[in-house]
Amino acid sequence: MILDIYKDSLEYSAKDWKTLVILGVICLFTLLLLPAFLITGYNYRVINTAVHGVINGRDPLPDFEDLISMFVDGVKVVIVQILYLLLPIIIFFVFAVVAGQANGVAASAIMIIGCIMTFVAFVVAELMIQMGICHMAYNDGAFSKAFAISEIKEVIDEIGWFECIATLLGLIVITLVIFSVVSIIIGIIFTVFGISTAVLGINPSAIFILGGIINSLITMFLVGPYLSIFNSRSIGLLYTMQI
């Protein structure tokens, strides 16, 4: 089932390259912060489509319309993320403070325990974030549903904690692999060009600089948006496994 989710999401994300370019253009202005909420809001729409759809269905990519609503959705998602991540952050700082009051081996032991507990809390928080956002989308965008802990836990129990964590880890691996493969391919192409120009007695610096620029552009305008849709779609479909 997890492989079916990945297959569906990989195909779904490539349905409309124009959408990827639009998201890439918005990424150019993310340093202004406000556009970042639009990207998050669009990914939320992808999740919303997925939680109301089926694996290997004919769901279309969301349209870029009603930008105010998209922006608001993005803000809601970011708030959900921040609030859930507060727990592992607090746990880490509590242990850091306690370790700071101890000495030698005791301080090291406390920090090791703190790091382990922080990691566990982070994994749980990340899972609650993803399923909480899906639960909010499934319940018509009701913000309170993102924090309906008992309901979200029931969803995760129904899907299976192992399946949920395995899916998230798989998304991380796939994301890193795609980024790496694209960068390596572009790197090899421009390395060959660079070596060829060097053999001809031409300074290859410009070729390598051009390769870096093209790699950045492809990552921003195509690969990055593609993977953000892929991840959002996968999470949304994972949620449907309990319905």
Rank of each mutant, 00 (worst) to 15 (best):
T175L: 11
T175R: 10
L176N: 12
L176Q: 09
V177L: 15
V177E: 06
V177F: 08
V177G: 03
V177T: 05
I178Y: 10
I178G: 07
F179G: 00
S180V: 09
S180L: 09
S180D: 09
S180N: 08
S180F: 14
V181N: 10
V182C: 10
V182N: 06
S183L: 08
S183P: 08
S183E: 15
I184R: 01
I185C: 04
I185M: 12
I185K: 01
I186C: 04
I186Y: 07
I186R: 02
I188D: 02
I188W: 09
I188Y: 01
I189S: 05
I189A: 11
I189M: 09
F190R: 01
V192S: 10
V192W: 11
V192R: 02
V192D: 06
F193M: 14
F193I: 14
I195S: 09
S196G: 06
T197D: 14
A198Y: 09
V199C: 01
V199P: 04
G201V: 01
G201D: 03
G201Q: 05
G201I: 05
N203M: 04
N203T: 05
P204F: 10
S205R: 07
S205I: 13
A206I: 15
A206S: 09
A206E: 13
A206W: 11
A206P: 06
I207Y: 06
I207C: 11
I207D: 07
F208T: 10
F208G: 06
F208S: 07
F208V: 12
F208I: 11
L210F: 14
L210E: 03
G211I: 00
I213L: 10
I213H: 07
I213F: 08
I213E: 13
I214Y: 06
I214T: 06
I214F: 09
S216A: 14
S216K: 11
L217E: 04
L217A: 06
L217I: 13
L217M: 00
I218A: 00
T219L: 15
T219Q: 13
T219N: 15
M220V: 12
F221Q: 09
F221A: 03
F221H: 04
F221Y: 05
F221P: 03
L222A: 07
V223G: 05
V223Y: 01
V223K: 00
P225A: 02
Y226W: 03
L227I: 05
L227S: 04
S228I: 11
I229Q: 09
I229H: 06
F230E: 06
F230W: 07
N231Q: 15
N231E: 15
S232L: 10
R233Q: 12
R233G: 05
R233K: 12
S234P: 08
S234F: 07
I235E: 10
I235T: 15
I235R: 05
